[in-house]
Amino acid sequence: MTDALLPLALSQGDPAGIGPDIALQAWLRRDALDLPPFLYIGDAEVLRVRARQLEIDVRLQEVDVAETATVFGAALPVFHIPTGTEVLAGSPHVANAKGTIGAIETAVQLCFEGKARGVVTNPIAKSILYEAGFGFPGHTEFLADLAARQVGHAVKPVMMLAGPKLRAVPVTIHIAIKDVPQALTQAGIVETCRIIAHDMRQRFGIEAPRLAVAGLNPHAGEGGAIGHEDDDIIHPAIRTLRDEGIDAFGPLPADTMFHDEARQRYDVAVCMYHDQALIPAKALGFDDSVNVTLGLPFVRTSPDHGTAFGLAGTGLAREHSLVAAIRMADQISRISKVQS
């Protein structure tokens, strides 16, 4: 298989969630949306049952990876990994965790073997995986560990929400608000921004990326009147980045960073905590935003939503974010190939 025909590897996510639904719907719209070939990695029988439940006619074909591109026009290609037990839409079960994890591992392995050019991950339910002994805070950390095993050194993943109107990165992610000030360090901000700048150049084709760095406190601390972190931690980090030739500026008051005019001044908003980044990202592009993991030695994107168990099998789940994730993985992998 030539590089131009390499597929994207789409992991099933939690099979009781909407991952199977939106994968089926995306494939049905493949021609209308001009989607690149993708290989569904997961349980073929779950897809068959879900298609019947949704009353849609989809041909499935279990394939070897190399057959994906030739099969894709006529059937949804599937790399079969059994779930472990019967799957009921909307009813997650810990017995299915092994298949969920196996699909992710397989997708990553295909990239390292040169058989896939990127990973697109459907949503997982972390609480279910935790019951099965999953030892990572989430998807991203697991992917970083898989990468580290392959390359032989630690890998720092950086989560970016990317949509048509905004790219936003949180420096700290899934921690309590009360823990954010202690978690913020100059070194952490600098390392995160270095990865952002590198991947903006190598994977998005932006030669001189502009990084707008948010303050932590209201009004970016108001000169120390509303907290000291902006002056003591964030500002020195920005100075270090500028000394290295990275176009980072701030710290900026977060409440004036995201209106239309302000967004024209930067390529990525670097935020200090989860909601500071994700609230504007989702408000500006809920159906069109994509979760992109920077800092990995392979391309990874994901829909910007959860498993939505209440929608699984109902026909109400929308495939828009998955389609955006597939398109972005396609775009990034093409640019990355040119840059490499």
Rank of each mutant, 00 (worst) to 15 (best):
T293V: 06
G306R: 10
D34S: 15
P7Y: 03
A225I: 06
V87G: 02
G73T: 10
S340W: 01
E207G: 00
H305Y: 09
F112A: 07
G152N: 09
F258P: 00
A89T: 10
L216W: 02
D255N: 07
L110R: 02
S302V: 00
P77W: 10
G224P: 05
G135K: 11
G135P: 05
I234A: 08
I101C: 06
T85Q: 04
G138Y: 09
V268N: 12
A208W: 01
L33M: 14
A107L: 12
G17E: 08
L76R: 02
R263G: 07
A147H: 11
L311M: 13
W27N: 12
S340H: 12
D199H: 13
E191K: 13
P7L: 04
A89H: 10
A74I: 03
D3R: 13
R48G: 14
G84P: 09
L110D: 02
P82T: 14
H93E: 14
M328R: 13
A283V: 01
R263V: 11
D247L: 11
A214I: 00
C193N: 12
Y266C: 11
L278F: 05
A4W: 04
G42F: 08
T301M: 05
A132M: 02
L5H: 05
V171D: 02
L24H: 06
L161N: 00
L311F: 08
H174D: 12
E67A: 15
V63Q: 04
L278P: 00
N96F: 01
T100C: 14
A214V: 00
V158T: 04
V49R: 14
R30L: 11
G306W: 09
A147V: 12
T68G: 05
G133Q: 03
V120W: 08
A324M: 11
P137K: 10
Q202M: 15
G90M: 09
L39Y: 02
Q264E: 15
A132Q: 03
A187I: 01
F204R: 13
D34C: 10
Y273K: 01
D267C: 02
V323H: 12
I18N: 07
D64G: 00
I56G: 01
V71K: 03
I41F: 07
L47T: 06
Q61L: 12
V190N: 08
R149L: 13
H320M: 05
A277H: 00
K115W: 06
D145S: 15
G90A: 07
P20I: 09
T2S: 13
I246Y: 05
Q276K: 02
P253W: 04
E67L: 04
